[in-house]
C-alpha cells in the first residue's frame, strides 16, 4: 500500500496579527509549497488564527542538537550582569 512516495513534510508558521512574529503552529504533508500553503490555510486558520502563513520544507531547517544544550546555553547562566536587575541603583533613579 505504501510503495508510492509520501508527500514531503512542511512546517507551518502563522502570524496571528499584524505586528507580531510568525510562530510555529504545526506541520503537514503537501506535494509542493503552493499546496502546503493552501492546506495550512484550511487546517490551521479555520477560526481567524492568522493573517499570514509561512510554510518551510522541514528538511530545510537546521536545528541545534539537544545533546549540545548544556554547552550552548548554560554559559548564559553565570552572566547575570547581562540583566538589568544586576545593578543596584539609588532609589531615586531605580526606575531606570
Amino acid at each position: 500500500m505504501s510503495d508510492r512516495q509520501e508527500w514531503p513534510l512542511y512546517e507551518v508558521f502563522i502570524r496571528s496579527k499584524q505586528g507580531l512574529d510568525h510562530k510555529h503552529v504545526g506541520s503537514l504533508h503537501a506535494p509542493d509549497a503552493k499546496l502546503a500553503l493552501q492546506n495550512a490555510r484550511d487546517v490551521y486558520t479555520r477560526r481567524g488564527e492568522g493573517v499570514s502563513i509561512w510554510v518551510v520544507p522541514s528538511s530545510a531547517i537546521t536545528a541545534s542538537d539537544p545533546e549540545d544544550k548544556a554547552s550552548n546555553f548554560d554559559p548564559a547562566d553565570d552572566k547575570i550582569y547581562r540583566h538589568p536587575t544586576f545593578y543596584t541603583l539609588p532609589k531615586e533613579v531605580d526606575h531606570m
Partner: peptide
Amino acid sequence: MYTQSMDIPGQQ
C-alpha cells in the same frame, strides 16, 4: 517542532 527530518549538522 513537529518533525524528525530536520538536519543536524555533523550528527552521525
